[in-house]
């Protein structure tokens, strides 16, 4: 197995007396989707926040291509090639869909900080923004104001903005939340397509989607890793079956 592009070692986050994430070690590889599942409050979103720099860890390491990035700010981590989408839609509502993607794309071309040339004048930035919108299935919505999009489309824009920053590691926090079946299907196809040249960590509740894309599966309960392995291993694990007492159908693919 090739070296992990991103891995965590003993990652821990405490909020006062509460241990939200406890001693979590996992790794992400390019070409793989690593799905993290678990009940609400298991610490999945906190884990994402630790990896993206939205929160500093209390202990442990986050190693990106051999370099410890734990405690760096989210903008630094983003510029190093880690992109994330948010569980709660986090976009620029008053801007057009294109401007949302263009801003994301602009963050990858530092010379665009030139202050006297028009923002739309950079072909490379525009092309990247359009490509990201097309990939997320929003090409036809480019001129719409983001606030007027449907909930599902806003979720797609969330992903498009992430893609426009051309990350190598993608942290997707419940991208399917609130999407209709058709949109969900397209998102699953998109994730599959992105797998080839990205390392993806996916947090998801939709088990059909989980088993459709997962190469590895980690189950978290109360901030701890309960089980981690291939989907088959996890499905067969007695510990997981015990934890999801009576929830066996949840793990039927």
């Amino acid at each position: 197995m090739a070296e992990a592009i991103l891995r965590t070692e003993g990652l821990t986050k405490r909020f006062g007396g509460l241990v939200a994430v406890s001693d979590v070690s996992l790794d992400l590889h390019v070409g793989e989707v690593h799905v993290v599942i678990g009940p609400n409050g298991a610490g999945k979103s906190t884990l994402t926040n630790l990896l993206s720099g939205d929160l500093p860890p209390s202990a442990g390491r986050v190693v990106l291509e051999g370099r410890d990035i734990a405690g760096l700010s989210s903008d630094q981590i983003s510029r190093m090639g880690v992109g994330r989408s948010y569980q709660k839609t986090n976009i620029f509502l008053p801007f057009t869909v294109f401007e949302n993607a263009r801003l994301a794309s602009q963050s990858r071309t530092p010379h665009a900080t030139r202050v006297f040339s028009r923002a739309e004048g950079y072909a490379e930035i525009n092309a990247r923004a359009h490509a990201a919108l097309e990939a997320a299935g929003l090409g036809h919505r480019a001129e719409r104001v983001a606030a007027t999009l449907s909930h599902g489309e806003q979720r797609q824009l969330e992903i498009a903005m992430c893609l426009a920053t051309q990350p190598r590691v993608l942290l997707l926090d419940e991208p399917l939340a609130g999407m209709g079946p058709h949109e969900s299907q397209r998102m699953v196809e998109l994730i599959k397509k992105l797998t080839a040249d990205h390392a993806i960590m996916l947090i998801e509740h939709d088990m059909d989607a989980v088993f459709a894309v997962a190469h590895r599966l980690t189950v978290m309960v109360n901030g701890e890793v309960l089980e981690s392995g291939t989907p088959e291993q996890v499905r067969a694990s007695p510990a997981v079956q015990a934890a999801y007492l009576g929830g066996e159908e949840m793990l039927h693919g």
Binding site: S52, S74, S78, N90, P94, F95, L103, S107, M161
Partner: peptide, 14 residues
């Protein structure tokens, strides 16, 4: 962008 959503701008790498 910072005025509208500072948090997201940071997450985008600004």
């Amino acid at each position: 962008g910072i005025k509208v959503n500072e948090h997201r701008m940071r997450a985008l790498g600004f």
